[in-house]
C-alpha cells in the first residue's frame, strides 16, 4: 500500500504537467542576467544580382558553367542557431527551427531572443533539420509536414529546395530542374553545420535589439564544392550522393554581410 501511494505521488505531477500545459512551449527557464535579441535577415542572390522568382522573364541567370536558368522556388530549413563569443562560448536558441522561403517575405526575417548580453563574433547554423527531429514522430510549427518540406514515403525532412527552368542545349528547348535535398543518416547525410564569422561584433545588451544580414548566393549551388552541370543533373528527389554534393555546395552559399548594433 505504502509503495503504491508513493508511486502515485511521484507520477501524478509529471502527468499533470503533460496533460495541462499543452500551450506552453518547452522553453527552458530564462537565463539569469540581462538579455537582448537579434534580428536575422536573409537575402538571396544569384552572384551579385538579388534573386527574383519567376520564369516570365526567360533565363535571367547563368551558372558558372554557362547554363542559362531562372528560379521559381528557393526555400530551406535553418536550425540550431548558435551565437558565438570571441572566447568560444555559445548561446543556442531553444527550439530553433526556421523555414526560409524566398516566396514568403515574412519568412526572410525573424528574431532570436533571450541572447545573454555580450559581444558575439560568429554565428553557427545547421542547414536542414537535425536528425533527432527526423526520428521523433509528428512535429508542428515550422516543422509541420504540411509545409511540404517532408518526404512521407521515406520519413525525413527535405532540407532545401531549388526549382526553376533552364535551357537544354541538346534540344535548344526549355526544361525544368528540381533539387530537393534530404537524407539525414549515413555517408550521404545532407546536414551541414556552418560557422559564419561576423564582419563586425554583434553587441547584445539588456533589452537591446541588434540585427545581422545573411546572404545566400544561389550560384554556389553549382560550384560551391562540386561542379554541377545542369545539362546532366537536373532532377534530385531522394537521398544520395547527388543530394550530398548539392548540399555541400549549398552550405558554401552563405555569408554574413552586415551587422547593425
Amino acid at each position: 500500500m505504502r509503495f503504491k501511494a508513493l508511486l502515485f505521488a511521484a507520477v501524478i505531477p509529471a502527468a499533470v504537467l503533460t496533460g495541462c500545459s499543452k500551450d506552453s512551449k518547452n522553453e527552458p527557464v530564462a537565463e539569469p542576467g540581462p538579455a537582448g535579441k537579434a534580428a536575422f535577415h536573409f537575402e538571396h542572390y544569384a552572384g551579385n544580382t538579388p534573386l527574383s522568382l519567376g520564369n516570365s522573364q526567360g533565363y535571367v541567370y547563368n551558372t558558372p558553367q554557362g547554363d542559362q536558368f531562372n528560379v521559381t522556388m528557393y526555400k530551406y530549413y535553418v536550425s540550431n542557431i548558435k551565437l558565438v563569443k570571441a572566447d568560444g562560448s555559445e548561446y543556442a536558441e531553444p527550439e530553433s527551427y526556421h523555414l526560409v522561403n524566398q516566396a514568403e517575405a515574412s519568412s526572410l526575417s525573424f528574431d532570436v531572443a533571450g541572447i545573454p548580453a555580450g559581444s558575439y563574433t560568429a554565428v553557427k547554423l545547421l542547414l536542414g533539420v537535425d536528425s533527432t527531429r527526423n526520428v521523433s514522430g509528428a512535429q508542428t510549427g515550422a516543422l509541420d509536414p504540411a509545409l511540404g518540406m517532408f518526404w512521407a514515403w521515406s520519413t525525413g525532412y527535405i532540407m532545401a529546395k531549388v526549382e526553376g527552368d533552364f535551357l537544354k542545349t541538346s534540344t535548344n528547348a526549355n526544361a525544368v530542374f528540381s533539387f530537393h535535398l534530404g537524407g539525414f543518416t549515413g555517408k550521404n547525410s545532407v546536414l551541414n553545420e556552418i560557422t559564419l564569422p561576423l564582419p563586425q561584433e554583434l553587441a547584445v545588451g539588456d533589452n537591446t535589439s541588434s540585427s545581422l544580414t545573411l546572404k545566400s548566393d544561389l550560384l554556389k549551388w553549382f560550384n560551391g564544392f562540386a561542379p554541377i552541370d545542369l545539362q546532366t543533373l537536373n532532377q534530385v528527389g531522394s537521398a544520395g550522393v547527388e543530394a550530398f554534393d548539392l548540399a555541400r555546395n549549398f552550405s558554401y552559399s552563405f555569408s554574413v554581410t552586415k551587422v547593425q548594433n
Binding site: V135, G137, A138, P145, A146, A152, W153, T155
Partner: peptide, 29 residues
C-alpha cells in the same frame, strides 16, 4: 512501417497513405 520500412515512427505513418497518389491522394493542408 510499410513493407519497405520507409516510415520510421508510428506518428509519421498516416502522412504516407494520405499523400500517396495511388491511395488517398490528398494534401495535408
Amino acid at each position: 512501417f510499410f513493407w519497405d520500412g520507409g516510415v520510421n515512427h508510428i506518428e509519421m505513418q498516416p502522412f504516407a497513405p494520405i499523400t500517396n497518389p495511388l491511395e488517398m491522394d490528398e494534401t495535408l493542408v
